[in-house]
Design a protein around this nucleic acid. Structure first.
Length: 950
RNA sequence: AGGCGCGUAGCUCAGUGGUUAGAGCGCUACCUUGACACGGUAGAGGUCGGGGGUUCGAUACCCCCCGUGCCUACCA
């Protein structure tokens, strides 16, 4: 038994090795950046939601980043891959509120501080799940730098950015329509709503004119909003209504008097050409209202809870908006004002977190003025400071950025970064009114006989400032109230010094903190070594679904605050869909759980599949059979290692030294001391390494993975290992050298594969006597460090040998001759190559006798294979079938003829000869003569058979 | 409505202005050969969605059509 090589099992069992090596990597800190002075390579992970569980999208995303990180680490870069999670404001709050509901509690009864405490508890208990799952994938992140968007440091960055932008006037407060989710009870940004086609009705309603016996019919998809109508608009060019403009209508049900107005955006072709205008509940109508002079009034009839307000009238107040719709339609029918209802599909906005239909509501919110930042961000991509790969996504990026609207960043929830803004209740507004008059408070409980009212009113009722603040369930700050922003907690009004200040109750959009991720994770706003060394990061790997949500905003914030891009490359990968191309979703029930795939096939096979699927610019249809295929690949590799070990024991039982020694020997020896297959496989290794490096350089993960697969299975295993059996079995004098060559190639194959399949490669690599601790820090093979000459001579000669073997196998296969039947073969070929490699041909083609010569003759009852530079005759006395053989050769002849006709057509075309490049013509001429020659030889053989075997 | 992408072997997908158009899986035949049946050898299978155009030459470039998927949008 060889003392230096470990025994291994017959087939690969992932579970036995994965946990072991991951712990080993972690314990030794291999994932922490090392090597001062080396070029840095850095990635920040797109932080998954802390509430998240690993899904296919994460798995793909993380696998690709890990492939890059491991590859660069092996290439000698100082790699830093920063992991972390984001606090996912709405999602997390929803999760905890659901938990509270089970206990019969809600966040209001708990109070703000206690609720937040509760969320932190939840996070401590459950927030580690996704991180644990990333580790299962083998992610080589530097876990010692794991970050969370609500960490102290990151929060400091958020405050700094908010206050700077506020001071610069780029963050402002404004009242306008926003997307409101009645279920989550918060504002949402434009990006956080999803539009869905849905089947609705277009309801036609008669609005009578005030002073005439006439009416106008309007069409609407939301009849309930008519209670808030403040006008009916028509197109000024519309002949039907021109005479009505300026007249007054009696709004049905509400009884209000509203005008008929003109607005050029009204489409005369839609509905009746007359639009009811509800400025408080429709973005279009808001725009119409604001184009009028004076502006049309806003009458909100739906409240933040999705129920009708007092403005809707006694009959409807308190009704849910959808119940109200039914009731309104009912009443209109009764009154004969509903003229018809048509089926109508239209797109409805939904909350991306809870799928509830969005209600546009006028509220005061905080906005970021993004115009100038967006302009810079466009220039950075246009000027090539940031590469988006594949670059088809640039267009989406540009079109979004060019039409960007100000970003609503305030959210009416508790879990998140609280807006660093305070308001003084005692100062006066510009019009001299006490600001406290505009601060409305709803109390948790009755105090001094009141439950809600303005700050002033509560004060008048005898409530103290401290009581008001401590018991406030909701605080609504009027737009008239002057905001003060501060990096530190304010204790008094900066203007009047009053201690009666209230903090803005809202928190920031989670994406606000995510936008800072590339530098907040590195310690900003402090000036840290990490920032100096690692910013800008090298690449951002992400899915296109968050190109706007996140990537665009990171670019804006990075440029604004770091005066430099956050990353040089953005690699946008596909979405993982199910086998039929459907988006995976829980509601469809077609979700494939990555962990169950890992359980079944092992992490390496899963990762390899994802990399192999990751062709640029196309979605991934996830097919489990592919994973199974790559598990077979892992097993193949495993068994190649077993083969090598068995032969080490046989050929070099006293030890092989170390891999470094073997490598040095192979790299420095004279090629002439090697067999032809040895020389050939070394060149193929070199070419494969070059292909893989090139592919990874261009983020072509599928090309890289297929190159390594192809090489290991179809060249190393199918050919080289079969060939070395000859050297070993026949005890060639240089068998030991061949073995070392095999070990060298295998060692480098493991390295090439390691970024894709980290576990099995580490396991196998360590079963050889290595000079290093881990393959993850072994140099990645490339043209420089392999020290292999581009031996084209060996490649040419080897293809002759392969042709000879394939030719014989082909005949054997087509006639179903069992491998156990040894054949007699004659090869007519000039030159020494085949003779020099006689044994290889005999063994791989399974021959009993082989004769090679430049002038050997074809014997009767032999099958023929015509190859470039040789003719192969296989003796098959007894089994030989003249008819079958003539048929086979005839088929071959026909195939050649087709090709010849094709090429003849080209060569006889004067236009082609005139205009095609010389090199192409030369190539065709050469091909032509080869085809002709081959055809003649086949014809010749057919003639011989006819003569000899008649 | 606008924009983007896709349509290549039974399935999932690569690919390129000149190749006899490729891979994996599946299929067929033969093979329990001493690394591996999670294997080996051989094979069948494609007028590259349809129609025009550019070109000496198109699966590839342009236009139209059909099918399909996605993104964006203030379709009352």
């Amino acid at each position: 038994m060889n003392p230096s090589v470990k025994e291994i099992a017959k087939s690969y069992e992932p579970k036995d090795v994965e946990q072991k090596w991951y712990s080993f990597w972690m314990e030794n800190g291999f994932f922490q950046p090392a090597g001062d002075g080396k070029e840095a390579y850095s990635i920040v992970i797109p932080p998954p939601n802390v509430t998240g569980a690993l899904h296919m999208g994460h798995a793909l995303n993380v696998t690709l980043q890990d492939v890059l990180s491991r590859w660069k680490r092996m290439k000698g870069y100082k790699v830093l891959w920063i992991p972390g999670t984001d606090h996912a404001g709405i999602a997390t709050q929803n999760v905890v509120e659901r938990q509270l509901a089970i206990e019969g509690l809600n966040r209001e009864t708990l109070g703000r501080d206690a609720f937040i405490e509760r969320v932190w508890q939840w996070k401590a208990l459950n927030g580690g799940q996704i991180i644990h799952q990333l580790k299962k994938l083998g992610a080589s992140c530097d876990w010692s730098r794991e970050r969370f968007t609500l960490d102290e440091g990151l929060s400091k960055a958020v405050v700094e950015v908010f206050v700077s932008l506020f001071e610069e006037g780029l963050i402002y407060r404004s009242t306008r329509l926003i997307n409101w989710c009645p279920r989550c009870s918060t504002a949402l940004s434009d990006l956080e709503v999803e539009h869905e086609e849905s089947e609705g009705k277009l309801t036609y309603i008669r609005y009578p004119l005030l002073d005439e016996h006439d009416y106008i019919i309007v069409a609407t998809t939301r009849p309930e909003t008519m209670l808030g109508d403040t006008a009916v608009a028509v197109n000024p060019e519309d002949e039907r209504y021109k005479g009505h403009i300026g007249k007054l209508l009696r709004l049905p049900l509400a009884g209000r008097t509203i005008p008929i107005i003109a607005d050029k955006e009204v489409d005369p072709a839609f509905g009746t050409g007359a639009v009811k205008v509800t400025p408080a509940h429709d973005f279009n109508d808001e725009a119409i209202a604001k184009r009028q002079s004076p502006h049309l009034p806003f009458i909100p009839v739906i409240g933040q809870d999705g129920r009708m307000t007092a403005n809707a009238g006694n009959k409807y107040a308190g009704l849910d908006r959808y119940d109200c719709r039914k009731a309104v339609v009912e009443e209109l029918k009764e009154k004969g004002l509903l003229t018809k209802e048509d089926k109508h599909t239209h797109s409805v906005a939904h909350c991306y977190r809870c799928r509830t239909a969005i209600e546009p509501l006028p509220t005061a919110q905080w906005y970021v003025d993004v115009e100038s930042m967006a302009k810079d961000a466009i220039d950075l991509v246009r000027g090539g400071k940031i590469n988006i790969i594949p670059d088809g996504w640039k267009n989406s990026y540009f079109s979004w950025m060019e039409n960007i609207r100000d970003w609503c960043i305030s959210r009416q929830i508790w879990w998140g970064h609280r807006i660093p803004v305070w308001y003084c209740a005692d100062c006066a507004t510009d019009s001299g009114v006490s600001q406290g008059h505009y601060i409305h408070v709803v109390l948790l409980k009755e105090i001094n006989g009141v439950t809600d009212g303005t700050y002033e009113e509560l004060k008048a009722a005898g409530c103290s400032h401290a009581e008001i603040i401590a018991n406030a369930k909701t605080l609504t700050i009027g737009i008239q109230v002057r905001p003060f922003s501060g990096r530190d907690e304010l204790s008094g009004c900066p203007q009047c010094g009053s201690a009666n200040i209230v903090r803005d109750p809202d928190v920031l959009d989670t994406w606000f903190s995510s936008a800072l991720w590339p530098f907040s994770t590195l310690g900003w706003p402090d000036s840290t070594d990490d920032l100096k060394e690692v910013y800008p990061t090298s690449v951002l790997v992400t899915g296109f679904d968050i190109l706007f949500f996140w990537v665009a905003r990171m670019i804006m914030m990075g440029q604004k605050f770091m005066k430099d891009v956050p990353f040089r490359d953005v690699y946008i990968h596909a979405l993982v869909r199910d086998e039929t191309g459907q988006k995976m979703s829980k509601s469809k029930g077609n979700v494939v759980d990555p962990l169950s795939i890992i359980e079944k096939y092992g992490t390496d096979s899963f990762r390899f599949s994802l990399a192999a699927f990751a062709a640029q610019g196309r979605d991934i249809k996830f097919a489990e059979e592919r994973v199974e295929g790559y598990r077979h690949f892992a097993n193949k590799l495993w068994n190649a290692a077993r083969f090598i070990k068995l032969n080490i024991d046989k050929i070099m039982p006293d030890g092989i030294g170390t891999i470094d020694e073997i490598s040095k020997e192979i790299q420095t020896l004279d090629a002439k001391s090697l067999t032809l297959p040895d020389r050939w496989i070394l060149v193929r290794l070199l070419q494969t390494a070059e292909d893989i490096n090139k592919a990874l350089d261009g983020y072509r993960f599928n090309d890289a993975s297929s190159a390594v697969y192809q090489f290991i299975w179809h060249e190393l295993c199918d050919w080289y290992i079969e060939l070395v059996k000859t050297s070993f079995g026949r005890n060639y004098p240089n068998a030991a050298l061949t073995l070392k060559c095999l070990i060298y190639v295998f060692d480098n194959s493991l390295r090439l594969l390691h970024p894709f399949m980290p576990f099995i490669t580490e396991e196998l690599w360590n079963s050889f006597p290595q000079n290093r601790q881990t393959i993850s820090l072994a140099p990645y093979p490339d043209a420089v460090n392999l020290h292999i000459a581009p031996d084209t001579y060996a490649c040419d000669k080897m293809s002759l040998v392969i042709d000879a073997i394939s030719g014989i196998r082909n005949i054997r296969g087509e006639f179903n001759i069992a491998p156990s039947k040894k054949l007699h073969v004659t090869i007519k070929a000039a030159g020494e190559t085949l003779r020099d490699n006689f044994d290889f041909i005999v063994d791989l083609a399974k021959l009993e006798a082989l004769e090679i010569g430049g002038d050997v003759e074809k014997k009767p009852a032999t099958m023929t294979s015509v190859k470039t530079g040789m003719e192969i005759y296989v003796s098959l006395s007894g089994l030989f079938d003249v008819k079958a053989e003539l048929q086979r050769l005839g088929k071959e002849l026909k195939k050649l003829d087709t090709a010849i006709v094709d090429i003849e057509g080209k060569l006889s075309n004067m236009d082609y000869m005139d205009r095609a490049p010389r090199a192409v013509i030369e190539k065709d001429k050469l091909k032509y003569s080869e085809l002709i020659e081959k055809r003649d030889r086949i014809q010749n053989n057919i003639d011989k058979i006819k003569k000899l075997d008649k």
